[in-house]
Design a protein around this nucleic acid. Structure first.
Length: 881
RNA sequence: GGACGUGUAGCUCAGCGGGAGAGCACCUCGUUGACAUCGAGGGGGUCACAGGUUCAAUCCCUGUCACGUCCACCA
């Protein structure tokens, strides 16, 4: 006998370990099995499981378990990302906390060795947390973006793209992070709105004939100004173009140039040009052959290219100094407070500076073209569909991708330089030296953007560039499940790299999962203190409850507002199933080997068999379409509202009755349906279902292996029996009507009342006859018989073509009952009027579809009949009254 | 400025051309055994607003308002 409750704390680790040890997570080696593969979005190796991971990985696990049960060669390939900046940060902080020497003091090799050491001891955290979530990844294939194989793939890709001219080195403005002293890509820049101001500065004309006023939000950049621009059509400044101004403080003579970039509508219409520190100014500078003077160093301090008094001062200190000096020179013409967007590094949080350096770039525009086409023609589809618009929007406006980072942790760029600065890009140092004719070379100091290696993830993890069995079998992968926040970072780059290097899309379908927010819709963050730790939730409610909740809430919406109460509710759902199984055990509902539901003779058996088949159809289709909310909803309704609330209640009289044949059939059927529940629920709630699968085998025939590897159910349409459906539906309606009446009339629960049924068809009469015992029990009736007409003083209700009448003498409140009937009648009359209006409308009759007209006619007839019966009942009441 | 999305019951959301739905919350009633982590019953909505298309609009179109997210912009 089962315990009263499922104990997830002990069962979950035990079951997971058993699954893992059995090798069931690996794809079947059956060569005929159709492959189904998913690559995990590799979490940062520094990461720990947050609720977003829990959602993302639950959805993947649901899919992979479903496809595994369907007999596919299901591969879910796990791994982690080396996460350049994030990891370097963690280890640096650890070194500093421990009072060790810093990264720069210990040197590159020693530091990188430290990071590897850290990875070996602490890098497995998130992988173990995925196990707690029940993730059925094939751990034997686990990869790391910086492992030997993936590193070789990275070098090969870099070299090939370089040979094709798609990777190049360029000197231009980059987004520079002064905190980490590295370049970052556009995507790693976050715009934040902050308080700021426009400072209006006067630049005196060289000839002393006046001044020109410019405005800036970054006064310190004036130290690097090399021009002032005005619009060529701006009458105000027409005569000044070609003249020069003397840059205050610096003393440099700089030209006034005419350029369309200057907007006459903005400010004074004249704009200062700092080519080395502004993306727009850089372009203007190019057009006019202006010098780009770099006044900042890598730390964001003023460099030796600026006047001595500023050198070595932080950019924000220099800003104040510049303003003060303008004021002192009486050249400050105004300050205008404003709020404006300022770029910040997404990791460092500091203000990003446009900075002029040499970096490596990928020609993303060229790579994007096939990637756009693949989504346009449907080789890869987004789910929900409209995410493709986001993808297109970015891909069609894509900019060169800056891939070099001035960090130590990552894939070192496979480029070597000789003394003269010639570059040799090769997969190995030996090859580079050979290419250089034996000269001594020095490798590029930089590493690649982390996303460069994750862009290869879909095929590098399967063994590329080797033509491995896995690559042949599992590439292209089937589905990618990921968050919309990394469509640009990751999905787009995998599309580009996958198509370029394999000629095929990396995945056929991209399922975009929502963002989990707190119950008020706020983004979860540590500072707000509203984070929900999935591991705490798992400990509290069990993993299955957390998984079911996340699945149930994964509709089309972009956000999931997660309230703990929901998890509690789905924990109860698990308990409900557990107790239904317990009930089955108590009633001898043991699995019968070879039981064929098709042979069922009892109406109740045929009905639940059909309901099971309908549920399986709904759930299977929903799983195929990744309609997760429908998966959860379909299972919940069937197990709780159909199986527990009705079937088990309807089965009780049979299970307690004396008809042995009926009893043994219902016992076998109950056990069978329970098995089907476990099978269908397993992908979402793997633990409790597996536990029940094993436990029920203790009292019945042995099981052949895990539920996890059992076959997904599929039933013939013939399992649905319309006659049984009609009959049980009728019983359910009848019982519901009686219960409703009893409650409305405040009939005491213990009172057993007589019921008559008049005007019943022979079919209804037969149904009453067949299910009388059931009806008496469930509706708490004393008797249920056919009658000529409802007796006076009874409470009537309409059931199909018949009138039911409950004898409630002693409980009936005449006035209340009259009011109830009048309300019902009014409702029917309103229906009739509405339908009559339609049927009386010649346009409706001429243009509406046949079946709609028929439907309305039937509706009218039903309403009329019901109204007539209720009116008769009301009349009787009035006579009595 | 551009793009995408959302406004349906107190809350969270489903539905999406022909009778307004679910879960939770709320109210009433009910514990000698599957489950109080439960059962039975019930109340509650001009489906944001305004136009249009249609025989018919919560659903399609246009506009307005409100909210959210992403991208661009830092004179």
């Amino acid at each position: 006998m089962l315990d009263k409750n499922f104990d997830p704390r002990t069962a979950e680790p035990r079951l997971y370990q058993a699954w893992e040890e059995s090798g069931a997570f690996a794809p079947t080696d059956n060569p005929d099995a159709e492959p189904f593969s998913i690559v995990i979005p590799p979490p940062n190796v520094t990461g720990s499981l947050h609720i977003g991971h829990a959602l993302n990985n639950t959805l993947q696990d649901v899919l992979i378990r479903f496809q595994r049960m369907r007999g596919k060669a299901a591969l879910w390939l796990p791994g982690t990302d080396h996460a350049g900046i994030a990891t370097q940060m963690v280890v640096e902080r650890q070194l500093s906390d421990a009072g060790n020497m810093g990264r720069r003091d210990m040197g590159r090799d020693a530091f990188v060795a430290k990071v590897w050491e850290w990875k070996a001891t602490s890098g497995g955290t998130i992988v173990n947390q995925l196990r707690r979530l029940g993730a059925s990844c094939d751990w034997s294939r686990e990869r790391f973006t910086l492992d030997e194989g993936l590193s070789a793939a990275v070098r090969k890709v870099f070299v090939q793209l370089h040979r094709e001219g798609l990777i190049y080195r360029d000197k231009r403005l980059v987004n520079w992070d002064p905190h980490f002293q590295t370049a970052i890509s556009d995507l790693e820049v976050e715009q934040k709105e902050v308080d700021g101001a426009y400072w209006h500065f006067a630049y005196p004309l060289e000839d002393g004939s006046g001044e020109i006023v410019v405005a800036t939000t970054r006064p310190e950049t004036m130290l690097g100004d090399t021009a002032v621009a005005v619009h060529p059509d701006d009458e105000r400044y027409k005569d000044l173009v070609g003249k020069k101004v003397r840059l205050p403080i610096v003393g440099r003579l700089i030209p006034i140039v005419a350029d369309e970039y200057a907007d006459p509508e903005k400010g004074s219409g004249a704009v200062k040009i700092t080519p080395a520190h502004d993306f727009n100014d850089f372009q203007v500078g190019k057009r006019h052959g202006l010098e780009a003077i770099n006044i900042l160093d890598a730390f964001g301090k003023i460099s030796e290219n600026a006047p001595a008094q500023f050198q070595g001062h932080d950019r924000f200190v220099a800003r104040k100094m510049v303003i003060e000096q303008f004021e002192a020179l009486d050249l400050l013409r105004g300050i205008e407070k404003t709020r404006h967007q300022v770029p910040h590094g997404d990791r460092s949080g500091v203000v990003i500076e446009p900075w002029l350096t040499d970096q490596w770039y990928v020609d993303a525009e060229t790579l994007a073209k096939p990637a756009i086409a693949a989504v346009e023609d449907g080789r890869t589809v987004f789910e929900p569909r409209n995410w493709d618009k986001t993808y297109f929007e970015w891909m069609r406006n894509i900019q060169p991708w800056c891939i070099s980072r001035q960090l130590w942790w990552g894939h070192r760029i496979p480029a070597w330089y000789d003394e003269d600065g010639n570059i040799y890009v090769e997969e190995t140092e030996a090859a580079a030296i050979a290419a250089a004719g034996g000269k001594a070379l020095k490798q590029d100091e930089d590493v690649l953007d982390t996303w460069f290696s994750s862009g290869l993830w879909a095929f590098s993890t399967l063994g590329w560039p080797e033509q491995t069995e896995d690559l042949k079998r599992f590439y292209p992968t089937h589905t990618l499940v990921t968050g919309f926040d990394i469509i640009f970072f990751w999905v787009a780059r995998m599309m580009m790299m996958g198509l370029h290097f394999t000629g095929e899309v990396p995945f056929q379908r991209v399922v975009i999962n929502a963002l989990v927010r707190d119950e008020k819709g706020q983004k979860m963050s540590k500072s707000k203190g509203n984070v929900m730790d999935p591991l705490l939730l798992i400990n509290k409610y069990g993993c299955d409850a957390v998984r079911f909740t996340l699945t149930a809430m994964s509709g089309q919406a972009r956000d999931i507002k997660l309230a703990e109460q929901r998890i509690e509710g789905y924990r109860n759902f698990g308990t409900k199933l557990w107790n239904a199984t317990r009930f089955a055990q108590m009633n001898g509902c043991v699995r019968v080997e070879g039981f064929d539901p098709a042979t069922a003779t009892q109406t109740l058996s045929k009905w639940i068999r059909g309901e099971t088949a309908k549920t399986a159809a709904v759930v299977t289709r929903a799983l195929e379409d990744c309609a997760y909310d429908e998966v959860a909803g379909g299972l919940y309704r069937f197990i709780w509202n159909v199986f527990c609330d009705w079937y088990l209640e309807l089965a009780k009289p049979i299970l307690n009755g004396s008809d042995e044949a009926a009893k043994s059939e219902v016992q076998a059927m109950t056990a069978w349906v329970l098995d089907q529940c476990l099978l269908m629920l397993h992908p979402v709630m793997p633990f409790i279902t597996e536990e029940l699968w094993q436990k029920t085998a203790e009292e019945g025939p042995a099981r052949d292996g895990f539920l996890m590897t059992a076959s997904w159910p599929a039933y013939p349409d013939s399992f649905i029996d319309p006659a049984a459906e009609g009959e049980i539906g009728w019983v359910v309606d009848l019982v519901t009507e009686v219960r409703s009446l009893r409650a409305e009339m405040n009939v005491p629960p213990g009172a057993r009342l007589p019921l008559t049924l008049s005007g019943a068809s022979p079919e209804a009469a037969a149904r009453l006859e067949r299910h009388r015992d059931l009806i008496l029990t469930l509706a708490r009736l004393d008797s249920a018989v056919l009658a000529e007409a409802p007796a006076p003083g009874t409470a009537p209700f309409v059931i199909g073509e018949a009138t039911g009448a409950l004898t409630v003498a002693g409980f009936i409140d005449l006035a209340a009952e009259k009011a109830r009937l009048a309300k019902d009648i009014a409702g029917h009359i309103a229906d009739m009027e509405r339908v009559n209006r339609k049927l009386g409308n010649p346009d409706f009759m001429a243009k509406a579809k046949e079946e709609v007209i028929a439907e309305n006619r039937a509706k009218l007839a039903d309403a009329e009949a019901a109204k007539t019966k209720l009116e008769a009942a009301l009349k009787r009441l009035e006579t009595v009254g």
